[in-house]
Design a protein around this nucleic acid. Structure first.
Lengths: 161, 161
DNA sequence: TATGAAAAGATAATCCC
DNA sequence: GGGATTATCTTTTCATA
């Protein structure tokens, strides 16, 4: 059974909940112009159909001492299936790697890493990253400032005319 | 007044809430081995002191048709303060740009963009990105697969011996 | 089939120890 | 930090359109 399309009210609900998931259903209902029960049922449906994957708190990494964000591009050696598995399981278990992608182009992997400082990051490269199988070369893009950072995705592809 | 350090129980709470913020305070309390009221008070404190910045729902971008993720590296012209402001206000208002950083190195800006498909992304570059002031060159890193993606940050810098 | 009102149940928030 | 109480919100039920 394919999930139905989202209507304007669903989108309003998702927009609000992507910003603040602590709103009560009554508050949400009022903001989107319907009453409590249908609003609650819509949220249930959005969860059931998988539009909403979960609910998390956003923690302030700076307050916890992670002042740096680095995008590390990794060049990989050819790996056996088993080595690849070991590599990605390793990535999964390194908490400072927040995101990891395989990519097109010169490099093979792009990952977002958080670190307290440069010295720590250098140790991280040698003590963690390079210990993973197949890592041949690492090129790091250090961020200077964060101009935008949101977990909210657009709800509908824009049309360019 | 500087915020106190986090103890082991605070960290357990944050770890759990970074994974699932829909847990009730009673459930959290049980999991971390204290009772309801002190657990609730800790959560309030963690919010008050800014360790918890907010609570959001995570939406499935694939289900909404955003099948691509691209890291766009942008080379910028020298800009006046006013132009810079216009640029970053533009970035803020483009919903497909989820993250934007100023970076060290060859390029000046790194941004994470979501897109439905390649054709859309091409139009996006010409209709949105290039319309921003100062954009001289764009190099795109297209992701092939997402091996890891979490909003959960580590709570304590690891020590490498 | 969808809605809204209202009851029932669960949880959050407060109080006192 | 814990236990008990109250206030608030969530979830279910049911009558209605």
């Amino acid at each position: 059974m394919p999930a139905a399309e989202l209507d304007a009210i669903d989108m309003k609900i998702l927009t609000l909940m992507q910003k603040d998931a602590s709103l009560t259903t009554a508050e949400l209902a009022e903001k989107v112009g319907i009453s409590q029960s249908p609003c609650w049922r819509r949220i249930q449906r959005l969860q059931g159909e998988g539009y909403i994957k979960g609910q998390v708190v956003i923690v302030d990494r700076e307050k916890l001492g992670f002042h740096m964000q680095i995008f590390a591009q990794v060049k990989m050696a050819r790996l056996s299936d088993e080595e690849r598995q070991t590599f990605f399981r390793g990535v999964e278990n390194i908490p400072e790697i927040l995101e990891c992608y395989t990519v097109f182009g010169e490099m093979d992997i792009l990952m977002k890493v958080v670190a307290p400082d440069v010295k720590w990051y250098q140790q991280f490269i040698f003590s963690s990253l390079m210990k993973l199988p197949g890592v041949q070369d690492i090129r790091s893009i250090v961020t200077l400032s964060e101009a935008k950072h949101t977990t909210a995705v657009p709800l509908k592809p824009r049309q360019f005319q």
